[in-house]
Each structure stands twice: as structure tokens, then as C-alpha cells.
Amino acid sequence: MNRGFTWFNGVSLVLGFGFLYLPILLLIVYSFNESKLVTVWAGFSTKWYGALLENQGLLDAAWVTFRVAFVSSTVATILGLVAGLMLSRFGAFRGRVLFSGMIYAPLVMPEVITGLSLLLMFVAISFDRGFVTVTIAHITFSMCYVAVVVQSRLISFDRSIEEAAMDLGCPPGRTFLLITLPVIMPAIVSGWLLSFTLSLDDLVIASFTTGPGATTLPMKIYSQVRLGVTPEINAVSTILVGIVAVGVVIASVLAKRDEARRAQDERLAAAAP
């Protein structure tokens, strides 16, 4: 569909993206505000970033959040990869309906329910709440996202390459490592990144499943936000937005390079005698 891009289309794009980006841009701009009052501009300053470094509670929370995000996204990627393979490759195994239901349900489940149910289970088995329980909770919902991403990549994947490898005498395990894994690598990487940001972002599930000494950054931000807007929170938010933006840009550049290299490989393979 590419019939004449009208002024109406242009206006909707400008307004739409303005709506999407203006609030974040304003937040970033006011994090450099000299004044304590968030809406009065009193000159450029980076003092709120300096204040962050002295806020030990916030730094501790950031460290907890980062560790939870790293561990949970790594485990979730491995489990999600296996789950994605199961869904797309194993045909009708026993309990498949239940399994795919359990993969898709957490994606649409309200967070309050997921959080509450996990907490009640940890209480029921009298498991001490803290770092481990938050990580387990994050793995549980993240692995479902990874499974879906991996599965959709596997569906569009040309299986004849695998068959060719096996016809040439490559054992299944090795075929997986040499052919399948490299092809679905972009999906695995984006699954990991998605899990990482989901974990970094989560407030509700972490609030339910956490225990003493494992306050995450979103929980800290939330408790301060309820008291009002402060330039310090603007500064933390700006840093988080910056990290995510850099990560997404790097990931998309890598994906693009990978795509280009694969296209070149395919061209060369087609041209080979």
C-alpha cells in the first residue's frame, strides 16, 4: 500500500509520535533543571545526578534490580528456548494443550493475579521471600515471552536447510548447534533483551514476591512517586531510559548486520556451482 502519502497522513504521524515521545522528552529535559520545582525552569544543572550517587537506598535498589534482571533473563532465555522448540517442533506430545496454555496465559494475565498467586505459593511452602523469589517470579513470566519470540522465528524458518545437513550425515544434535541455533540467534538475543527490560520494569509482581532486603528500583521509584514528582526521580528515569535506548539501538544494529550477512551468504550459496 503506497498510494500517495497525504497531508493527513503526515499530520497523524507528527501528532502520534509527538504524543508518544513528548512526555519522555519533557521528563529528560526537567531532570537537568536547577530548580527543585519540577515545572519551573531555572537553568541547566546536573546536580540531581550528583544527588543520586549519594542516595544509598536508591543505589542498593538499582544493584538488586540489575542482578535480578540479569539472572532471570538468562535463565528465562534458556527455558524459553526449550519451550519454544517444544511448541514448534515436537508436534502433539502429551499435555501439549496445557503447555501452550501455560505459555500464553502469563502474557495476558493481569500482573496483580500473577504476583498474588506466586506470593501465596511461596507462603504455602514457607519459602523465605527475597531476591530468589523475585527472580523466580521474573523467570516465570519472561520465559513465556522468550518462548513466543523463539517460536515465531522457528515457524518462519526454512527446515530444508536442517534436512540438507542431516542428509549429508550431520547428527541431529550437531545440526541443531550448527544450523538451527545460529539461525534463531537473533530471536534468542531479542528474547533475552526483552526479558531483561521486563524484569527491570516490573513493579507489581516484584512488590508481591519480594521480602526484606530485596527492594527493587521500580518499588523504590514507586514509593517516592506517590509522594510527588521530584527531579531526582526524573534523573533516575532518564538514566533508565538512556540504558534501554542504547540497548535497543545496539540490538537493532546487530540484527541488521546479521541480516545483511545472512543475505550475502545466501547469495553466495546460490551462486556457487
Partner: peptide, 11 residues
């Protein structure tokens, strides 16, 4: 990809 909480907070 950016934090849900932060986007709500911005408003």
C-alpha cells in the same frame, strides 16, 4: 521497551 512506570510517571 522503556519502563512502564516511568512513562506513567512522566504524565
Amino acid at each position: 521497551w522503556t519502563s512502564f512506570l516511568i512513562r506513567v510517571y512522566a504524565w
